[in-house]
Design a protein around this nucleic acid. Structure first.
Lengths: 150, 150
DNA sequence: TTACAGTATATGCCGTGGCATATACATCGG
DNA sequence: CCGATGTATATGCCACGGCATATACTGTAA
């Protein structure tokens, strides 16, 4: 039996501190923050993605996602291309600058994670923790839990 | 060996969706959100806490914490009491209304967590996951990782 | 075709956090 | 005690997300 409130507290604190620390490194090295890195990486790995696809993946509102893309577009890292099969939406694509940025930032990100938690999360208990989080995530997504309004 | 980027992604997605879902329930039932519940619970469990104690616990800036207390004070749930041993700071205390609120909200919170993840996180692997997160948290806190500027 | 319900995105208002700064107080060395 | 430095908090400006709404478009059915 697990102490759920305690587990939740640990989960949130870890997420907060890791996100903060990665923000520092990414901002310092590349002028972006973690949420932007995650957007760019998603666009690199899923060509043809639309705003709604990002919103669903990250469980944020569509409006906020649209504004996030505005900012990335303003920086010249992303472009909205007309979607031939549905003129309400746009296909999002990385520019060459955006591609270069995401690849460079990925090194910072991966090395940062290793430095931050590699030493702590390498035991055998770590694999089971990772498996538990992956399973929890898939259940939450399957049941649409915590999906924002709009 | 753990896929750290994948683990981090799962961690952040779980945290986002759980936080969103708990926000919905707490807002609906008590007119507060999860971060406010966490503040109130902390103040209940640590009498004599100051703004800086909250900021350290939750890894948020002191300024943001001060503003958060402003809002709770405006609702009549918290009071700033003069601190006899250091006039720069105040001792934070729950009002009777605040105490009542946090106890009621705790039921919603605990039951909500059980409904959201109790079914998924009750296996034996869950305990080791919980242990891993607790350990990671303590290491991050010990090393002051991700502690905001101010 | 036209009307209508549904969908994808964009935009505005508001609340909230980060960060820098200001202010009040504390502490230490002389 | 005095000045210098450090600490605790408050406040202002900015960036960002939620949510509601507006707009454009799609698909369906008559």
């Amino acid at each position: 039996m697990v102490d759920l409130p305690g587990f939740f507290a640990d989960l949130v604190r870890c997420e907060t501190r890791l996100y903060n620390a990665l923000n520092d490194r990414l901002r310092e090295g590349h002028g972006i923050v973690t949420s932007q890195f995650e957007f760019l990486r998603f666009l690199r790995d899923r060509p043809g993605a639309r705003v709604a696809d990002l919103a669903a993946e990250f469980a944020v509102g569509v409006g906020a996602t649209s504004k996030g893309i505005d900012r990335l577009e303003k920086q010249g890292w992303v472009v909205r291309q007309p979607n031939p099969s549905d003129r309400r939406s746009s296909i999002l694509a990385l520019t060459p600058d955006g591609s270069k940025l995401v690849d460079e930032a990925e090194t910072t990100f991966t090395e940062g994670l290793a430095a931050l938690i590699g030493g702590t999360l390498d035991g055998s208990s770590a694999s089971s923790a990772a498996r538990a989080m992956a399973q929890l995530r898939s259940v939450l997504e399957l049941n649409q839990i915590g999906t924002p309004t709009g």
